[in-house]
């Protein structure tokens, strides 16, 4: 591996930038995501930073089962993100539709719209679970890089 690649990979692993998109959630998972970056949980100690635009982000944190109205936006946001990109479905309803299953204006889960790399269940997923999920995702990515070598 070239030294440049190694630096890029190191930077990627140590500073996963995150974007949050609410795809029809009930807000509970969203406030838990915000709670996970505030002092008590402090997700930022892993180098991650909440960004405003998809073009800067590596990880897309999605909460909510995707309303039909938002599906196209979600796909667009996903396509704007640079490679390699990861999608994390936060909350039961983002994983499977959860309590909203059967409602007419919903898909049942993020994976019906875009590919998902990590599912974090819980209604709402607690901040510890979210941090655990993001850390596991990074570990997996690190492993896949090593395997490639």
């Amino acid at each position: 591996m070239k030294i440049v690649d190694r630096i890029v990979n190191w930077a990627r692993l140590k500073s996963p930038w995150v974007i949050h998109f609410n795809t029809g959630a009930c807000n509970a998972c969203d406030i838990e995501i915000v709670a996970s970056i505030t002092p008590t949980y402090d997700l930022e100690r892993f180098g991650s930073l909440l960004k405003g635009t998809p073009r800067h982000a590596d990880v897309l944190l999605c909460s909510g089962p995707v309303t039909r109205q938002l599906k196209d936006r979600l796909v667009r946001i996903y396509e704007q993100m640079p490679e390699p990109k990861f999608v994390v479905a936060v909350g039961t309803c983002a994983c499977s539709g959860g309590v909203f299953n059967g409602c007419y204006s919903m898909l049942s889960g993020i994976d019906e719209a875009i590919p998902v790399s990590m599912y974090i269940p819980g209604c709402p997923a607690s901040p510890d679970a979210i941090i655990d999920g993001v850390v596991k995702l990074l570990k997996e990515y690190e492993k896949s890089l090593k395997d490639k070598k």
């Binding site: 609410n22 089962p65 309590v99 909203f100 007419y104 204006s105």
Partner: peptide, 25 residues
């Protein structure tokens, strides 16, 4: 309308106790 989930309609097909869980969300 981006966050419209059809909860009111969803309640109509559910027993009252299930509605509590749905409406909480």
């Amino acid at each position: 309308g981006y966050n419209h989930r059809g909860i009111e309609k969803g309640c109509e097909g559910r027993p009252y106790l299930h509605c509590v869980y749905l409406l909480e969300r």
